[in-house]
């Protein structure tokens, strides 16, 4: 009966065309389901409304959410059932955070706090960009030569550029 508690992470997409109150209700329902099944939520990151890379259920936008929690392994099956039964959740992904993931997470967290301090001291142009991506892995630690794939990405990002500012949390 020794239940080892492990760290998990779920990212799910809520139908963005429903009312904000309904989105909040869905989020609360998921949080409640996690707690009810013996988990403890350690972090919730809202990425907000985002354009999806391809349409799912004929929808182009989704409200992205990322929840980190700890709990026994048996809860995952029950949780996934909750996700599947919820009509407003259009996609979900639950992964186990292994020690490497947790290490990397701790490292990026330390880096973002370290980076945030000088950013407040001298407000540069980078600051706004960082504010938009906070809570997610630090990008651009290594400015690299653009590969052809980058060009495609740029082309895409032009069309969805206006969506990114909403990304803030």
């Amino acid at each position: 009966m020794s239940e080892a508690h492990r760290s998990y992470e779920t990212t799910y997409i809520i139908n963005a065309s429903i009312e904000d109150s309904q989105i909040e209700a869905t989020i609360a329902r998921v949080a409640e389901a996690i707690e009810r099944n013996g988990g403890t939520i350690t972090a919730t990151n809202r990425w907000g409304r985002k354009r999806m890379a391809y349409p799912i259920d004929k929808k182009n936008n989704g409200y992205y959410l990322n929840v980190e929690f700890e709990g026994p392994g048996q809860m995952i099956a029950q949780l996934e059932r909750v996700y599947q039964l919820d009509e407003n959740i259009i996609r979900f992904l639950t992964i186990l955070l292994d020690k490497y993931a947790l290490e990397a997470r701790a490292k990026t967290a330390a880096e973002t706090t370290a980076a945030a301090v000088p950013a407040t001291e001298n407000p540069g142009t980078e600051k706004t960009g960082e504010a938009g991506t906070s809570g997610r892995p630090v990008k651009g630690e290594k400015p690299q030569e653009p590969v052809s794939a980058d060009k495609a990405e740029k082309k895409d990002s032009d069309s969805r550029a206006p969506l990114f500012p909403e990304d803030g949390r």
Partner: peptide, 25 residues
């Protein structure tokens, strides 16, 4: 290997910009 050069032990699926670099057009 770029990841070895940076001594990275974990590649995050959420980092779409990083991933798109390893994907063709």
């Amino acid at each position: 290997c770029r990841f070895c050069d940076n001594k990275e032990t974990y590649i995050d699926y959420k980092d779409e910009r990083r991933l798109s670099r390893f994907v063709s057009e």
